[in-house]
Design a protein around this nucleic acid. Structure first.
Length: 823
DNA sequence: GCAAGGTC
């Protein structure tokens, strides 16, 4: 008989085996899963790691046909639990058969309890052995031994809370997603799914809110009074003042101006600085003008007050997942999804600790010195570490955060490694920068604060006070190893109270308030974290889902909403506003918490949660028309734009996309907004059509299309040979002045089945050209009429040069000449 | 084909 234990993941299983067996365990394979065997107190133990959830909810298969099931019905159907990882489920059953005691040993949190219950459910199918729960929140020897020597009872409420979440999330997600997707498909063809969920949608909602405030932003005028001061010229003024006090009553107004030119650049940066009038941004112009008028032309200012303060900047607190992802995004430009993937690999390679944690403080018995000594293996850290240990006499103290979720320790380095070492172990772009960040953060956290000297000056011009601040780093502290955010010193020239300064310039600067900036990925992570959207492990996934759905995109660290995302959020905002806000999550979370606390049964919570979703679903369906109208248009336009070959441009009537449409009856350009918008344009019936994107029609045509490589056609205008600005579009092939109106140029018109010359001024004069052969216009001019000569080359014949002007006798001459040459 | 949560 055996004691069987299930941990949440393989690594944890091995760690526990190591501790409980004091290192003498063996690895074995059960149904493809690693298991660890050892003896403990005379009993056989075997512990295996699951891989997170091994079961999951889904609807019974008969509800999988989207087109045959009203999405609303999904709210009345109970999803069923299925095994999602067959091999692990088999391993659980196989091991449980021979167990006399089963211990659930997953992470000590809601999902961990639930994962344990999945194993419990499978075990109970084949075993009647007692099932216990080992609770631990770190891999310290004492804690693990205590947890396994005195296991407690599984916590049904906790596990059922997770179960409730799974079912409610699925119900809402499936019903909303299917409803929106199917409704839009009635109006616009798209294979894509338009998904909605209690985490992904509020995530997009944050991006939408920011975008909306940018779009709705109205800049406001404001004025700022700025003064440029100079200490060096001030000294002269002081001297003059002293002189004048001795009796010389003729101060030189222009003294500053004259000597200014002589000053060197270097001096300028040391003696000049700028101050802002204490009122800051002034919204009334009169007020700014008033202040400006009072001091305009003043050349003298005085340092009225000077305060110098030391300010310290504490090191960052230990990294939890959210903080890590934020820093990877803003310092390293690595997306949350990639960063977590890299951290996962660093963890699996033994370089860093477990990356999914909410905790940002170290346990009191955490040992820093062995890790610091590991990190000296990397020469970029060794000097700092040696200094740190010397200065603290080996008693390092972390600057802890305040969150202790009792899940895992903060993210910290486990092994010291150089760049090549790391890259050998983790073959992912960004692996070393991420490792480096984790190491530097770990070291910085143990280092002293950085000290800055902040200087604040009140400078008076007459009675008006100007503020000036300066900052100088006195001691780098932790910043010396953590140079991701460099804070530049803002140096001021040395000054004391009572000093007189020369005022070089006073400006009354008109300016406008700037719109909010686009949302950064790190800000989005903060918003999600604060509002309880997703967990430490899933936040990156929700961001990715929105990108995959085409709701928003990222360029570097900046997020921009896309049309579909904006329209979807806008529609939901009017129909079911709660869905795009964090409240959707917190309402469900409240129910779950009640289950966890035993105040509500799972069934009660499900009933109440389903009622909430039904209410929202009702609001959604009641607004179908508006939703579909907005989304269908945007989707059609996006699909049309991505259809490079047929996309023509933007419809001037409804701003949807115009595309080239070919039917059995013919071809034309139409608006994707059809049937709501019936804008169409004709195109020539024959000739291959190529949309020339680089050409812009000078006569307001929507686009320029090349027809059969022969001539151009301006959409909405007509053939380009009628365009009097055609030089800017496509250089025409001109023969010479029109013999009829003597104003226009005879331009070659090439059609699919004919070619001719036509007057560019549309006087009506045309002239035929040879039907066969490759026809080109030469630079050489006809000596008689001045037209350009033509060259025609027919198959298997010599090229023939001639003047095409019907009214020019040269035509005959040239032809005769050619014939005699060839004979 | 729908969600979110684990983990690989």
């Amino acid at each position: 008989m055996t004691v069987v234990a299930f941990a949440e993941k393989n690594k944890a299983a091995e760690e526990i085996a190591k501790i409980l067996s004091s290192g003498s365990y063996s690895r074995t394979n059960i149904e493809g899963a690693s298991a660890y065997k050892f003896k403990r107190n005379g009993e056989d133990w075997i512990i295996t790691g699951l891989a997170g959830h091994i079961m999951g909810y889904d609807y019974p298969t008969e509800y999988n046909r989207w087109n045959e099931v009203d999405p609303g019905i999904l709210l009345d159907v109970d999803p069923q639990k299925f095994v999602t990882k067959e091999n692990l489920a088999n391993a659980v059953e196989k091991l449980s058969k021979n167990a006399h005691l089963i211990i659930l040993a997953c992470d000590y949190d809601r999902e961990g309890e639930n994962i344990g219950f999945e194993a419990k459910e499978l075990a109970e199918r084949v075993s009647t052995a007692p099932i216990k729960r080992a609770r631990y929140s770190s891999f310290s020897k004492s804690e693990i031994e205590k947890a396994f020597d005195h296991p407690g009872e599984p916590d049904t409420n906790l596990a059922m809370a997770a179960e409730t979440r799974q079912i409610l999330d699925l119900k809402m997600g499936a019903a909303f997603t299917r409803y929106v997707t199917l409704s839009v498909r009635e109006k616009a063809y798209t294979k894509e799914v338009l998904s909605i969920g209690p985490c992904q949608t509020p995530t997009c909602g944050f991006v939408y809110e920011r975008e909306k405030s940018i779009r709705e932003f109205k800049p406001k005028d404001f004025w700022k009074i700025l003064a440029d001061f100079d200490t060096k010229e001030g000294e002269k003024l002081t001297a003059e003042k002293e002189k004048s006090e001795k009796g010389n009553e003729n101060p030189n107004d222009d003294a500053g101006g004259k000597t200014k030119a002589k000053r060197t650049k270097k001096n300028e940066s040391e003696t000049e600085f700028q101050g802002t009038h204490r009122t800051g941004q002034i919204t009334e112009k009169e007020k700014a003008d008033d202040i400006f008028k009072r001091i305009k032309g003043e050349k003298k200012a005085v340092v009225d007050k000077k305060t110098v303060k030391e300010q310290s900047l504490a090191p960052p607190v230990p990294l939890n997942t959210t903080e890590f992802l934020k820093r990877a995004s803003s310092f390293l430009n690595i997306s949350p999804e990639k960063a977590l993937e890299i951290a996962e690999q660093l963890y699996l390679s033994g370089l860093t600790s477990y990356p999914r944690t909410e905790t940002n403080m170290y346990a009191p018995d955490f040992e820093f010195l062995p890790i610091l000594s590991e990190l000296t293996k990397n020469p970029s850290y060794s000097k700092t570490i040696e200094q740190l240990i010397r200065e603290t006499a080996g008693k390092v103290v972390p600057k802890n955060g305040t969150k202790d979720a009792k899940d895992h320790p903060p993210i910290y380095p486990i092994r010291g490694a150089t760049q090549p070492d790391v890259e050998k172990l983790v073959n992912l772009p960004g692996a070393y920068p991420v490792y480096d960040l984790i190491c530097r953060h770990f070291i910085a956290n143990l280092m002293p604060s950085a000290i800055f000297e902040k200087t604040k000056l009140d400078i008076k011009i007459k009675e008006e006070i100007f503020d000036v601040t300066g900052s100088m780093k006195k001691s780098s502290g932790w910043l010396s190893i953590y140079d991701y955010e460099t804070k530049k010193d803002k140096m001021l020239p040395p000054m004391e109270e009572g000093d007189i300064l020369f005022v070089q310039k006073i400006q009354n600067m008109a300016s406008k308030t700037a719109p909010p900036k686009k949302l950064m990925e790190s800000e989005l992570l903060t918003l999600m974290d604060k509002n309880g959207i997703g967990t430490k492990a899933t936040a990156p996934t929700h961001i990715e889902t929105n990108k995959k759905r085409g709701y928003f995109e990222t360029a570097g660290k900046t997020i921009s909403i896309l049309d579909t995302g904006y329209m979807l959020m806008e529609s939901l905002d009017t129909a079911v506003p709660i869905v795009i806000r964090p409240e959707i999550r917190s309402q469900v979370e409240n129910l779950i918490q009640q289950v966890e606390d035993g105040k509500m049964t799972m069934n009660e919570a499900l009933l109440s949660g389903t009622a909430l979703i039904k209410k929202m679903y009702g609001d959604l369906t009641a607004n179908k028309d508006r939703l579909v109208q907005k989304l269908a248009g945007s989707i059609k336009s996006e699909a049309a734009e991505s259809d490079k070959k047929n996309y023509v441009g933007v419809c001037p009537v409804c701003a949807n996309a115009l595309r080239l449409i070919t039917t059995d009856k013919g071809r034309f350009i139409g608006c994707v907004g059809y049937p709501d918008c019936s804008q169409t344009y004709p195109v020539p019936k024959t000739g291959a059509l190529t949309i020339l994107r680089s050409k812009k029609c000078q006569k307001g045509g929507i686009a320029v299309i090349d027809v059969g490589k022969k001539y151009n056609w301006a959409v909405g205008v007509g053939p380009c040979f009628n365009c009097d600005q055609k030089d800017e579009c496509d250089p025409p092939e001109t023969a010479g002045i029109c013999p009829k109106c003597k104003d226009g140029q005879m331009v070659m018109v090439r059609l699919s089945d004919s070619r001719f010359l036509s007057c560019s001024k549309k006087c009506g004069h045309t002239q035929s050209l040879p039907k066969a052969g490759r026809l080109t216009i030469l630079d050489e001019k006809c000596p008689i009429c001045g037209w350009n000569l033509f060259r025609n080359k027919e198959n298997e014949k010599e090229a023939e040069d001639f003047c095409a002007n019907r009214r020019c006798r040269a035509i005959g001459l040239k032809n005769e000449q050619q014939k005699s040459n060839s004979n």
